[in-house]
Design a protein around this nucleic acid. Structure first.
Lengths: 222, 222
DNA sequence: GCTTTAGCGTACGTTTTCGTACGGAAAAAA
DNA sequence: TTTTTTCCGTACGAAAACGTACGCTAAAGC
């Protein structure tokens, strides 16, 4: 992001901790703040009338929440919350809109980010329809790992299962295999990524395209 | 769309037939024209390196192609083509960009459409991950039906299977059941929707949210 | 330290979907 | 009309994932 654009936002940015489970956007309710995530992982989750739910994308230090706001709306049907705690900066929607309006370059950058998130969602749809459980789990771990500082993923199998829309027991079995293959180590409530290469092989072409798009569209700019 | 915005576009719009299979946007290649679809159904399909593919959304008389262009990009990783023949009007990307730049109201409308398409993709991801084959097929038929004039869907089971990312034989069996339940009638290369209500029941809450969003965001405006 | 709770490993029968494949019939081509 | 092709109906064993559930154990609370 250009120094000018950063300066434009900085006046209204407020540094905040982001606790696990904290809700950033609730379904069908006006969004109040937009969050620039610097640490931690945000989950964007779709829910329908029968309470079926699944994660459609993650956001991390590469990104920002509030896509509906960027695109001129004030709300989303999705639920957006902190999956892995961290911190970041937030800005009120009003100030955010003002900044977008006054800086075309900032606005263009944000739109490119929104576009890259669409690609991520599209590939989630692909993985959900065609990939096997272990491929999807490997993909998820890689996406989370891309957005974290260290290698430790502080999540229970239960949470991973909800994200992927599969059984908790299915996650346990897959992670066991990963551990035997030396891809991760596990302990209660946490796993650690050991071999990214191995995970990428396991993810089997379901990982990569959105990541390349993110680089093409915004690179290190945000 | 406002009369002014329509006039702005009209100078550069060109009426064209849209043949089945016609490619509107190829992966990773600059988009040349943007299409306002008036008849027929467009499929937006994701493909990955291993040639796994699946449809992430459909566009019809409610909409327009070229979402990447609306969002400031010139290409997409997706493949976009006519699934069901029809016709519409097209405009060169250059003229389209010029029109968007000169009319904020047009631009805002297009962004709202892009936003509604994101919702559709998100719910496709949900359906792919959690719905059963017959639920997904019913959802697809409803979405296509929403975008067509009559009740006839001129597609083979093979094409439906590719869209959903399932076996051709799986589609055949599901359609057989639908026919026995009086939801559709079928003949070689074509099926006809008989009971939308029945299909909505079968789709079981996987249909509806993106449709409501489309109404909220653009209604009859496009 | 002791108790309680949350998370993990495992198991088993069942459902869903897959891969494959074969034959018949409708439509298109010759 | 005859031939060829495309599409559909059906079948069968296999794989993947499901729902459920039970016991063990690490960690948290008292």
């Amino acid at each position: 992001m250009s120094p000018d654009d950063l300066a434009l936002l900085e006046r209204d940015l407020e540094r905040v901790p982001l606790r696990q489970g904290q809700i950033l956007e609730a379904p069908n309710r006006p969004i109040e703040h937009v969050y620039f995530v610097e640490n931690g992982v945000v989950s964007v989750v779709v829910v329908n009338a029968n309470d079926h739910r699944i994660e459609v994308g993650v956001i991390g230090l590469d990104g920002v929440t509030g896509l509906p706001v960027i695109m001129g709306d004030d709300r989303s049907t999705n639920s957006t919350y902190m999956q892995i705690a961290g911190d970041g900066q937030r800005i009120s929607v009003a100030a955010f809109r003002a900044a977008m309006t006054s800086s075309p370059s900032l606005y263009a950058l944000l739109l490119r980010f929104a576009r890259s998130f669409m690609t991520q969602t599209a590939h989630t749809a692909l993985a959900n329809g065609r990939a096997k459980l272990d491929e999807r789990l490997a993909r998820w771990l890689l996406m989370a790992h891309d957005r974290m500082d260290g290698n430790a993923v502080p999540l229970t199998h239960e949470f991973l299962a909800v994200m992927l829309g599969v059984r908790r027991a299915g996650v346990t079995v897959a992670l066991k295999t990963f551990e035997q293959q030396g891809l991760v180590t596990t302990r209660r409530g946490e796993l650690t990524v050991v071999s990214r290469d191995g995970l990428e092989k396991t993810a089997n072409s379901f990982y990569g395209v959105p990541e390349a798009e993110l680089r093409r569209l915004i690179g290190e700019q945000l």
